[in-house]
Design a protein around this nucleic acid. Structure first.
Length: 477
RNA sequence: CGGCGCGUGGCUCAGCUUGGUAGAGCGCGGCGUUCGGGACGCCGAGGUCGCAGGUUCAAAUCCUGUCGCGCCGACCA
């Protein structure tokens, strides 16, 4: 009966991965749907996760010299129009404000889908001299893109993110910053979220509208699909010329600034779910888990049990995020609940333990239980959280490596995507036509041209002409 | 924007074919017994059946329209 019920709660990954994802998102109480399609309520469990992601990432930004600002959410249509590629890229999915109260507006306002144009408009007046450079600003905000197809975290019409926008005196400095921030994202993903990523450059077809070059970190989900998990763009002086952002350099000549932008969104929560989750529910990386240790009292009405549970909580509270589940539910219910919500460690404490001066700790990722003497609790919790992070990262890395293939020709390429999915490393001639063909035939896209290149073959996997680069290919979210 | 599906207590749904007193399970509140992997008993609260028209003595049910949500495709973080 118990087992049957659990099976009904969360659809198995192997049966229907999309349904599993939706079930986990709902059962772990990360979000709720609302009456507006593609707009979600991020509930306490989900928002606490985002806050911890923000905290860790923002700290890394500060160490990289980033300052936070806030710009408006409205962009006048004329401003959006200034950079041609940019407006063509975003126009199909912007939401427009046409009225203020009952009065039609003279010029309609778009709700920001991204803020390049606003930053440019601001920098135009803010930057006059080389002494004003560089500008390394970031904002935490929400943006709106009127997507047709929506999914919680992965593709919503409004989503939370941070967008960094920088302006530099030289091309070299801008490029350096682009790569620096990409590395911040990659390190953050591995060191904090336990998600291994591939770093590389987007092809021209896949790059950001208006960018000279887009760099990306790509992660592989449990179902073998890829997720672009963060991007960093080098704009060169394209936006500067479109917006007229000039400064007087040391030699007293007017020069255009070179710009970058980089972003990471709540989509990364989707990555956490799909990289680490299992059939019991969410598995949260210890460093961003809103609850790292959940204490479950057994026979909590017996004298002294709850007191002991609170005492352990108070001890652990100094170093970890802890909660006691002192609800009226049965222990079994609490175990399942803690697993669904992805709490990294669960401490079980009952009369037998108290008498023996110990407790039981259960790891979420492996569900292994160990008995621990109460006096060693803090040390053991710290050790287990550390090990869990390490193991989760290694498990995700092995999964990714085991689902990364090489294809020397189109037959191999097609066979892998028909039978397995995952990442495929294959050579590319550099021609967009080949990307289009591959996409039409297999709905596979180029994920990135990785920084770490290998020579898989001499010819393009698609057309057979001489190859220029090795590319990671995959089906993507 | 195309395809599919769905709107009935908080949730999941039954009821609709063949019109006639609005149901179940879970959840929720109270009391009691339980407690080491989703416990159980008793009592109780809770619904303008998405919305608008129409047909009818009578509509959750039939007809027309409309709005919304979910999933799958084309486009995107």
């Amino acid at each position: 009966m118990a087992d049957k019920k659990m099976v009904e709660e969360i659809t198995s990954m192997d049966v229907d991965f999309a349904q599993w994802y939706t079930d986990v998102v709902k059962k772990a109480e990360l979000i709720d749907y609302t009456s507006v399609k593609g707009c979600m309520v991020i509930k306490p469990a989900g928002y606490a996760l985002w806050e911890l992601i923000q905290k860790h990432l923002d700290q890394r930004f500060k160490e990289a010299g980033v300052e936070n600002v806030y710009l408006p959410m409205f962009i006048p249509e004329s401003l959006l129009q200034k950079e041609k590629d940019h407006v063509e890229g975003f126009a199909p999915e912007v939401a427009w404000v046409t009225h203020g109260g009952l009065q039609p507006l003279q010029e309609r306002l778009c709700v920001r889908p991204t803020s390049e144009t606003l930053f440019c408009d601001f920098y135009k007046n803010d930057i006059h001299s080389y002494r004003d450079l560089p500008r390394v600003y970031n904002q935490w905000c929400s943006v709106v893109r009127w997507e047709k197809e929506t999914r919680p975290f992965l593709r919503s019409r409004e989503f939370l993110w941070q967008e960094g926008h920088t302006a530099h005196a030289t091309e070299e400095e801008a490029l350096e910053r682009t790569i620096q921030m990409l590395n911040v994202y990659a390190d953050f993903c591995e060191e904090v979220l336990a998600i291994p990523v591939i770093k590389g450059q987007k092809t021209d077809k896949e790059k950001f509208a208006g960018a000279v070059a887009t760099y990306t970190i790509e992660a592989l989900m449990h179902d073998g699909k890829a997720l672009q998990s963060g991007t960093s763009h080098n704009f060169g002086d394209g936006f500067a010329k479109a917006f007229g952002i000039q400064f007087a350099d040391k030699d007293n000549t007017l020069k255009y600034v070179h710009q970058t932008s980089w972003g990471l969104s709540t989509r990364i929560i989707g990555a956490i779910i799909m990289v680490h989750g299992d059939n019991e529910g969410l598995v949260l990386p210890p460093k961003v888990a809103p609850v790292q240790v959940c204490i479950v009292p057994i026979q909590q009405k017996k004298e002294g049990v709850l007191d002991k549970a609170y005492e352990l909580r108070d001890r652990l509270n100094c170093h970890f995020r802890v909660k006691v589940d002192d609800s009226d539910k049965s222990p079994g219910w609490k175990f399942a609940e803690a697993e669904m919500r992805g709490y990294p460690l669960r401490v079980e404490i009952g009369p037998k333990d108290i008498e023996a001066g110990k407790c039981v700790i259960c790891r979420r990722d492996t569900r292994q239980k160990v008995e621990v003497a109460l006096e060693e609790l803090e040390a053991k919790v710290e050790e287990l959280l550390e090990i869990m992070h390490h193991d989760m990262l290694e498990r995700a890395r092995s999964h990714r490596d085991a689902h990364t293939y090489t294809a020397a020709n189109m037959d191999e390429f097609v066979q892998i995507f028909n039978e397995k999915g995952g990442f495929v490393k294959a050579m590319w001639c550099g021609n967009e036509e080949c990307e289009v063909q591959i996409k039409e035939r297999l709905s596979v896209t180029s994920r990135c041209i990785p920084f770490e290149q290998e020579q898989i073959a001499d010819t393009c996997v698609c057309c057979g002409k001489p190859a220029k680069k090795m590319v990671y290919w995959g089906r993507a979210y």
